[in-house]
Amino acid sequence: MVRVPADGSREAPIEQLVEVLHRLPGGQILVTSIENVLNWARARSIWPLTFGLACCAMEMMQAMGTRFDLDRFGVIPRATPRQADLIIVAGRCTIKMAPVVRRLWEQMPEPKYVISMGSCATCGGPFYYDNYSILKGIDTVIPVDVYVPGCPPRPEALIEGVLKLQEKIQRERRLTRRLQEAGA
């Protein structure tokens, strides 16, 4: 969590503006409205990282392909974590791969989201027992926002997951929380 410095010298212009508005009578409503607009924009342009691990990546490709066309929801894959808002962990993650996934997640700029696609990424799935190399759930290394069940989930299920993530983003109160922290 980024904390606002006391003198406000290093704040982004929008945050300075928000702080000014917040001091005005009735400014809280304005801040909430701005927040809603920001969330709306954010939720409608989720850019995932082009990152597939195993079988679920095929369904992810199909979801971005011709029939299902995730582009309709503003989901446009990016090839580098620096430009991505979302990482879809599609498939089983091995222990050898775990630090790599963690580093990719760390390289993504805030705000960032994680969808765990398929049972393998969620809990190890069919690779839970008698197995020595698969991580039992990606949430042991990175925090997950939406779990999509299935083995592999159908493209529709992934779209549902993205829509759920949009709902979640729409309800976020980042600015308000930041202001409260600055005020406290």
Binding site: M97, D130, S133
Partner: peptide
């Protein structure tokens, strides 16, 4: 390689 090594050969011995 080995970033997707899923120990299938081991698991098959148990199924």
């Amino acid at each position: 390689i080995g970033y997707l090594h899923s120990s299938v050969e081991k698991m098959m011995e148990h199924r």
